[in-house]
Simulated assay, not measured.
Amino acid sequence: MKNLKLLFVIIIISISFYTIIMSIKLTIDLKDAKEQLKSYQPSQMILSYGNIEYLDRGDGEVLLVCHVIFGGFDQGYESLKDLTKDFRILSPSRFGYLNSHVLGKGTPEEQCKAYIELLDKLNIDKVFIVGTSAGGTVAIRFALDYPNRCKGLILYSSAMPETEKPKKINLYQAPPNFLCNNLPMYLISPFFKTIMGMERNVVKTMLPIDKRKKGVKIDGEITNPDMAVNYDNYIIEEIEIPTLIFQSKDDKITKYEKFITSVKRFKNSTLKIFETGGHLLVGHEKEINDTVKNFINAHK
């Protein structure tokens, strides 16, 4: 009994010590993250429903980026910044992320309407629409709803459509609400590798989480389940624009077995499959960028 009490005390002390140390590290990283966001000097534009925040960098063919969950204009831009030497990267924060307001309920359809309004304001006629991870749902919706505004669809480790109408649907597809805060997410970051196949430093790109939490909630409740909930409205076979799709076999988030079946619904697609790299396609940056350049130059 004494040994159990001692073990319990040791565990409590260890957890407390761990929390204190991580809280100190979080304070430093949070300050750095906020300074980094300011350094981008993002643009703000008032649309019919409110503000949209975005980065607009480079010249040439326009790549409109739909960023990942826990993202924002910063993550969208960072995923493609090496391409600014050749192309124009337009990276908005999606609904609820950072300083972007929400149109209606924040559905992918409404997000696409907001994109069109932004493009019209910027006098941009057509784009290559890019979807990364959860942002893939919005990119696919954009390709379906506005094919006349698309030159091509590019998907990085993207959410994929269902192959048949599901009988059961997970109506919340995001981390539990209590984790969608700075300290809880930071505390579990050492386990990212085991859970998601990502290095713990990825958590730094998610900060400040409290400024992204509303967007995460929209993604969890609306964006991520949308292709299942509204299965009949995602007729992927109708997408005629050329599509470029990147995926790794060891991705722990987008399961390869489901991916390889779903991707067959894209009729005009080019696939680039990697054996390794995980969800973030780590280690293949140059090959990916070269492939994107070739794809755009072939279809611009």
Rank of each mutant, 00 (worst) to 15 (best):
D59H: 12
Q36A: 09
G106Q: 09
N268R: 03
I52W: 14
V138H: 03
K249F: 06
G135K: 05
N123A: 15
D74Q: 14
N99L: 06
P92S: 02
T137G: 10
E162A: 04
S16E: 11
F246H: 03
K34H: 09
V292K: 07
A159G: 06
K214P: 09
L103E: 01
G71R: 04
S43F: 10
S23L: 05
M45N: 11
S189G: 09
E237F: 15
D125S: 15
K272C: 01
L155P: 00
P175I: 10
F17H: 02
F70T: 13
N177H: 14
I154A: 05
A228D: 13
M206S: 07
I52E: 06
E110P: 04
I124K: 04
I46K: 08
K300P: 09
G58E: 06
K81G: 07
Q41I: 12
K300H: 06
I28K: 15
Y231N: 08
S100W: 04
Q173V: 08
E53H: 04
K105V: 10
L187I: 01
Y256I: 00
E53I: 08
G135E: 14
K168T: 09
Y186L: 08
F70A: 13
V292T: 12
T254P: 09
V203R: 05
H279E: 07
I140P: 02
G277W: 06
A114K: 02
F191S: 13
K193G: 12
Q41N: 11
R212D: 08
L64Y: 02
I140H: 02
